[in-house]
Design a binder for these strands. Structure first.
Lengths: 160, 160
DNA sequence: GTGTATAAGTGGTTGATAGTGGGATAAAGT
DNA sequence: ACTTTATCCCACTATCAACCACTTATACAC
């Protein structure tokens, strides 16, 4: 087989990327945040950052986002809830690009939403990456930390 | 990542413009408002500005507006609500153009409708752009912000 | 282990562009 | 004609993106 020079990872979200792991980085004084190198290939050159649930930020590869967009577009303009839902995600989204050092610039509205002051935690969650303020992440983990028994029970319920 | 020369726009499903993001600008003393540069290309030189729902203004690229018009036309003339809905959008509509610095002049009836005094928030919402008074946007977000549980539920419904 | 090479992470500088304000000019309304 | 409103153009400033230099961490050979 001739090597075209094109690798599967040149197609963001092509294969079965799965984001895993937890990384800690801090925001520099210009609002830039490093994306861990483990995630860079699978996110691609450009990806979408949006407001997420529980005060974190979601990072989606472009194709994943387009998929999401298409679904949002089908919601009716006449429903008040739908308008709020759609506004939340679209207004909270930014397309971003890595600089040559593998960083992105966090827009101020997203920084506010995620309450990130200085230290951030970046975690891989299956098809997306999430960005948390360290404080919020710690709080979340202590608040919702189920004991291992509880986790095991939940897993059993889900048939794992 | 190695640049394979393959760009995202080479993929199908690129075409349609999608507005995303949140920007904040103020109206100058001549009543002019900056349209964020990210939106300018997709809006084109001339576009349609009209009254929107929830006390904001809608901005549609010409093509999207025609689309929207077609949908409005299909509404039954026999329904009182439908007639009001149609009048609302048509009567508020103005075609406008950017000046060379990328600004528009807000007609006074629309300025009144949106209650914009000084600070405005411009957000991308899928196929349209919305213009809010900062006060109204903040109020909207605190009043109607759906809880994360509600958002999560909606996401689940959409299969995201 | 130690030393070296490579990659990842950090910080600052600079040039380009977007945003902002205002004066001059033109068009429109009275 | 005169006032008002809108458009054009220029100058200034803030912000962002590209670039460069350096430090720290990781991988690998010996």
């Amino acid at each position: 087989m001739v090597d075209s020079g094109i690798k599967w990872r040149d197609f963001p979200n092509w294969g079965e990327e799965m984001f895993i792991g937890e990384f800690q980085h801090s925001i520099d004084n210009k609002g830039r945040l490093i994306i861990p190198s483990k995630f860079r290939d699978d996110l691609g050159e450009r990806f979408v950052l949006t407001k997420g649930l529980d005060n974190c930020l979601f990072v989606y590869p472009i194709l994943e986002w387009r998929n999401f967009e298409e679904k949002l577009k089908t919601l009716p303009l006449t429903s008040k809830d739908a308008r709020a839902f759609v506004r939340f995600f679209f207004s909270g989204a930014t397309e971003c690009e890595l600089d040559k050092q593998g960083r992105i610039l966090l827009p101020s509205n997203l920084r506010e939403h995620s309450k990130i002051e200085k230290d951030a935690v970046i975690i891989g969650v299956s098809t997306r990456v999430e960005i948390w303020s360290k404080e919020e992440w710690d709080k979340y983990n202590s608040d919702t930390s189920m004991g291992y028994d509880a986790i095991a029970e939940k897993m059993a319920q889900l048939g794992i």
